[in-house]
Design a protein around this nucleic acid. Structure first.
Lengths: 338, 338
DNA sequence: CTGTTAGCGCATTCAG
DNA sequence: CTGAATGCGCTAACAG
């Protein structure tokens, strides 16, 4: 089975009895062409199933493609997908397509994948930085590729950035607990080394310091082993003699683990719980959370990229998106001595 | 601020004192080049921060890019993101990047976006068909672009397809209920016109027919209005004189709506519930579901595409992925007369 | 093992 | 308003 060959702009020109450039104009400028000529060209194009080759066009127009890349660390985290959704939406309305790639949260993969992406001459590179330093992108930035850091600031690289108000969001959550009299408050996170989680941890400590609780380390359960059992840790925490009366979590995964652990533990007085990141069943379960808008995070990032494509010399910006404490019951439980 | 210009293969060749083709070989063939020559070229390339332009390469090599497009209907549905994750993973290991685009479940957008994607000369097009018919892709298929339908078969188009065992999965779920004595079983879905949901509805009817329950329409709550209140509908259903003793749902969204409704309704004997699609909190909530592997759905789809890129003449295949009934409590409740 | 020639499909000059 | 020539960056097809 021999495939028919794809029509080129020349084929269309021949059939329409015009020059290649005229065909080009019909599909690009759209102006500067007589109506009847345009008509004839359109007809010929349709008959030949002609479709302009974006690859060739982009190459001719300065070698930059009409795609923007978004590089995610962990594709299985629904948070990043919501972000990707926002990016895609904003890009699409500007005529760009999103190239989505993942790094498996490995610094080595990050470099390899970025190399491939830049080879495709993406118009901009959005990424959630994983490697310890992104200085290797400095050269690329000077070559004019807009780079936007999403959810985490880059290291050793000047770039537009969008992050959440992690620290103040968590501070507010913990304050709501201390206001109710809680003093023994645990912080549970896994992974814990991420920028966002570290910031939330800082906010947690700040809020506790405000009520003279300084030594919080024994309440902090931080792990970076994805296989470590948060479940077990929470169990231990609650079984101790001065068990916490409240638990805050560093992210959606930790929240899920904490809730599972609480289900399996029978305590007369369950601790108050406030999770970071909202989730679909939080309302049903009555779980208070520090909510934010991942979709908007993506849109903001895409807008930063588009702005920089339009004005490469503009000032570098960092956007911090607000969070919102949503009381749903679990976070309003008073402290009760177990 | 003037951006430095990007080095081309010629610049590298000049600096290394070789021809452009030799540089090309170093970055492609990798073989057929003397070690010391390769070394010199590598050095020169590094000094100039040279990065091969994939756009130009792809154009020269037959005009096909090294990207594969995946077109989703609704980006906010976590199901499709899990699928996208599987696709990306499988593609990446074969050296392709995923172009992700969305149609907002609009047939019109579908055509427009597909046009743009094909213009980029993607190596394959994966899509969840939305439009009533995809025959407009027939020409493209003949031109050699592999097309794979994901989660729904295409209409009026021969294409490789991956779907779930929707019908048998739901049949099995309903049988598990009738085996326990349930006869008044409701089916709740929104949206309901999708292929997958229609198949599940068919499975539901088949299983009920097996126990001589023929007139199921009054138990079927099917809606396609995203703003319609499933919540209200479930409430009405359960308040009726012969309320259902069990509810099965057509998808994850319906499950969520049903659970919310049940929370707000006080019934002495809550109905048994089996949801289609597993979700993170199902285990915690004790909700029985018909589970499947969306990630694997994506991987299978990507493999079909890669196979067809390798062998354009091969037989068209349809893969049906199995489902699994996961009992977690809610689906094992016996029928109780309210 | 290396170089030369030609051209992928299109758009940017610059003329008419 | 339209056309002819030229080349974007790279790689087949041939030489040598």
């Amino acid at each position: 089975m021999v495939s028919p060959t794809r029509a080129t702009i020349e084929d269309v020109a021949r059939l329409a009895g015009v020059s290649a450039k005229t065909v080009s104009r019909v599909f690009a400028d759209s102006a500067q062409v007589a109506d009847h000529t345009r008509e004839r060209v359109r007809d010929a194009a349709k008959r030949l199933r002609f479709r302009p080759n974006t690859l060739a066009r982009d190459l001719r127009r300065g070698g930059v493609s009409s795609t923007v890349a978004f590089l995610i660390g962990d594709i299985s985290n629904p948070f990043y997908f919501a972000v990707a959704g926002g990016i895609e939406q904003e890009l699409a309305s500007a005529g760009y397509t999103m190239l989505l790639a993942t790094t498996d949260d490995s610094a080595q993969t990050e470099r390899r994948v970025i190399d491939a992406l830049l080879g495709q001459r993406v118009s901009a590179l959005l990424l959630t930085p994983v490697a310890d330093d992104q200085s290797y992108l400095e050269g690329e930035r000077h070559l004019g590729t807009p780079i936007v850091a999403v959810d985490r600031p880059p290291r050793d690289l000047v770039a537009d950035t969008v992050v959440l108000a992690n620290r103040s969001g968590m501070r507010e959550a913990v304050r709501s607990l201390t206001d109710r009299g809680h003093r023994r408050i645990a912080f549970v996170a896994n992974p814990a080394s991420l920028y966002s989680v570290r910031e939330r941890l800082a906010g947690y400590r700040e809020a506790l310091a405000e009520v003279e609780v300084q030594d919080t380390v024994r309440w902090e359960h931080l792990s970076d082993d994805p296989h470590a059992s948060t479940h077990e840790a929470v169990r231990t925490l609650l079984a101790s003699t001065d068990a916490p009366t409240a638990i805050v979590t560093g992210n959606n995964r930790a929240t899920s683990a904490v809730l599972r652990a609480l289900r399996d533990i029978s305590t007369p007085h369950p601790p108050a719980v406030i999770g970071f990141d909202d989730f679909e069943y939080a309302e049903l379960l009555g779980i208070s959370v520090v909510a934010h808008d991942p979709h908007e995070l993506g849109r903001s990032a895409a807008r930063l990229a588009l702005d920089r494509i339009a004005d490469p010399g503009g000032r570098v910006r960092t956007i911090e998106l607000p969070t919102r404490l949503l009381p749903r019951g679990s976070g309003e439980r008073p402290p009760v001595e177990g």
